[in-house]
Amino acid sequence: MKITLITVGKIKEKYLRDAVAEYVKRLSRYCKLEIIEVADEKTPDQASETVEDMIRAKEGERIMKHIRDDMYVITLEIGGKMLSSEELADKINTLGIQGKSSIAFVIGGSIGIGQEVLKRSDFALSFSRMTFPHQLMRVILLEQVYRGYRIISGEPYHK
């Protein structure tokens, strides 16, 4: 299985980069992982809805350049479906059984994901109704994908 993580922006904090590197290393025995970072747009303070829509659209165009037709696209959205770790593991496993060999997880920028990307999404996933910094969300997602592969493999993992 190939897992592609498409994210808006770079991780600036060393502790988050270190955590991402650790999960990249751990996941290497279960799947082929690629992380693609697209440039983020500066959002002015008190930006109007129109300006925010334009920013999401620009970031969305950058994301769409990396989404292939054969990818199963999972967008991270506050309003998406919440899954347990076991349910996410089952989803990844079922996609593989169904012949999907490439999953793309999309983490938008600080103001969300553009409409073009949302329309292309095959599944909207929510980790919580709370908002998390998108750099931290990358670590949380990678941890859950790693946990999922441990569950699929029947290997122990802390609860």
Rank of each mutant, 00 (worst) to 15 (best):
I11G: 00
E13F: 09
K14P: 01
Y15S: 06
L16I: 15
A19C: 06
A21G: 06
V24M: 11
K25N: 08
S28R: 12
Y30K: 05
Y30E: 13
C31S: 14
C31N: 08
L33Y: 08
E34K: 15
V38C: 10
A39R: 15
E41V: 14
E41L: 03
T43P: 04
P44V: 13
S48C: 05
S48I: 10
S48R: 06
E49S: 12
V51Y: 03
V51G: 01
R56K: 15
E59Q: 11
G60H: 11
G60W: 08
R62H: 03
I63Q: 00
I63T: 04
K65Y: 09
K65I: 03
R68P: 00
R68M: 10
D69V: 05
Y72G: 05
V73Y: 03
V73N: 02
T75H: 02
T75L: 06
L76W: 03
G80V: 09
K81M: 13
M82R: 15
L83Q: 06
S84W: 08
S85M: 14
E87P: 02
L88T: 06
L88Q: 02
L88N: 03
A89F: 08
N93W: 08
T94G: 04
L95I: 11
L95S: 11
G96C: 07
I97Q: 13
Q98V: 02
Q98M: 14
G99V: 06
S101T: 15
S102Y: 10
I103E: 01
F105S: 00
V106D: 02
V106S: 11
G108H: 03
S110Q: 07
G112P: 06
G112N: 12
E116Q: 14
V117G: 01
V117I: 13
L118M: 15
R120T: 09
R120C: 08
S121Q: 05
F123T: 10
F123M: 11
A124P: 08
L125H: 10
L125A: 01
L125N: 02
S126N: 04
S128Y: 13
S128H: 07
T131N: 14
T131Q: 10
F132R: 00
P133D: 12
H134W: 00
Q135G: 05
L136R: 00
L136A: 05
L136I: 12
V139T: 05
V139R: 00
L141E: 00
L142S: 02
L142N: 01
Q144V: 12
Q144C: 12
Q144L: 07
Q144A: 09
Y146T: 04
Y146C: 02
Y146A: 00
R147K: 12
G148K: 02
G148H: 09
R150F: 07
R150Q: 15
I152A: 04
I152N: 04
I152W: 07
S153Y: 11
